[in-house]
Nucleic acid binder design. Sequence first.
DNA 1: AATTGCCCTTTGGTATGACCAAACTAGACA
DNA 2: TGTCTAGTTTGGTCATACCAAAGGGCAATT
Lengths: 237, 237
Amino acid sequence: MDIGNETGRAADNVVAMLEAKIVSGELEDQTPLPAERELMEQFGASRTVIREAISQLSSRGLIETRPRFRPIVRKPDYATVLHACGNVVQHLLTDKTGIKNLYDSRVFIERALVREAALSARKDDIVSLREALEENRKAIPDSNEFYRTDVAFHGVLYRIPRNPIFPAMHEGYTSWLAPQWDRMLRSPERNEVNYLAHKSILDAILERDPVAAEEALNNHLKAAWEFVRVTFDWGDE
Amino acid sequence: MDIGNETGRAADNVVAMLEAKIVSGELEDQTPLPAERELMEQFGASRTVIREAISQLSSRGLIETRPRFRPIVRKPDYATVLHACGNVVQHLLTDKTGIKNLYDSRVFIERALVREAALSARKDDIVSLREALEENRKAIPDSNEFYRTDVAFHGVLYRIPRNPIFPAMHEGYTSWLAPQWDRMLRSPERNEVNYLAHKSILDAILERDPVAAEEALNNHLKAAWEFVRVTFDWGDE
DNA sequence: AATTGCCCTTTGGTATGACCAAACTAGACA
DNA sequence: TGTCTAGTTTGGTCATACCAAAGGGCAATT
């Protein structure tokens, strides 16, 4: 196919060079990029290609751009990458089907996660889960706080495999699905139900019962979906 | 946070309008975009912002650009999106750790997939698996063909949940990990081993034994990893 | 001394016009 | 009918200019 050795587009070269400077640390993380007019001198290119390169780096998540500000260097990490993917993924969430697919995949993953937790959670994992659940319980009266601790509880599950990809996936799920969830009614009563669901999940994990844990989580997430479904008056799935 | 209502960058408006035209089908899939000079007239913007918009659409996977050719409209689907994510993900695969994390996540997902398959594969799924395995067997002498059928066999597992996200993930795993796998030695003997692993996975699925299926897959993928590890002389994980 | 208000400079966003080389097109030609 | 060729279209790049907003420094104020 393509060898990619030829000069091709000039912007690509600039991208590659800046990319190298970012990953090597020559351009420090969290620091602003040099001014465009300085970069064009540095690379011997016109401002056109410099801006093109900046645009590409931005869409790759290597720098963070705000409308009238200097781009900020961001050394790539899993969260950044996932966030950059968000712009792309969003096109698939315009209809109910897309959202359902994403949610179903989350259920699938999380079922496997709680299985894993029940089978091989370590002591400190258990401690984290207990703490997260307790925070969740205390937040029942405050729906906003409850939402936060809800997400945090599930987040603990994603950290158990100790693979940074999973927390990133969790970040993706919550941020991509958030637009729908935010529009959902919340109430202390509803929070109570969800808290109890979390508790039953943790109980099953504590009993080292993967089947019960998986089932508890499945019931929890299915019920949550059912709730948004009727909230938005979507037809049956 | 950001309301996003103000005009902001002019290119964003153009992006939004083109985006709408693409998803609505006014700009047909697989057809070339109008010429830049025509778009600038159509949107009343300078060529600068048109090109900026095109660049953004390209990085979002809504159009496909080749160096000197007209951009081709691509209505977003899961495969396209995943492919677009590839450019971003690639930064995380520069070192062994990143590759290992990605591979581990694949093992995790696929373990859950074979569990699912053992528990609830339908007749046609079984047929597909059998066919894929048979193709795999016949390809043992030809390493390139074997690799193809190997990927295809695993791909069947990803299609069982009937959620298009999973095949897309499979596509991502294979393409992102391919650079490493391609450099790996292949031989009919090695192929035979992998074929037998595939067979034992399918056997467990046929016996509706999720534990055995999961273990067979785990052994298979762990062995494969071990093989690349020694091939590349990476230290112990 | 810390804060506020103002002015000047820097810099990102955009527009215009131009040039080149590669892609495209149509007409000439075998 | 298929191929070659010359003219046109068009993407990639450059240079220049202007505007508005961000940044920075200095003086007045509290």
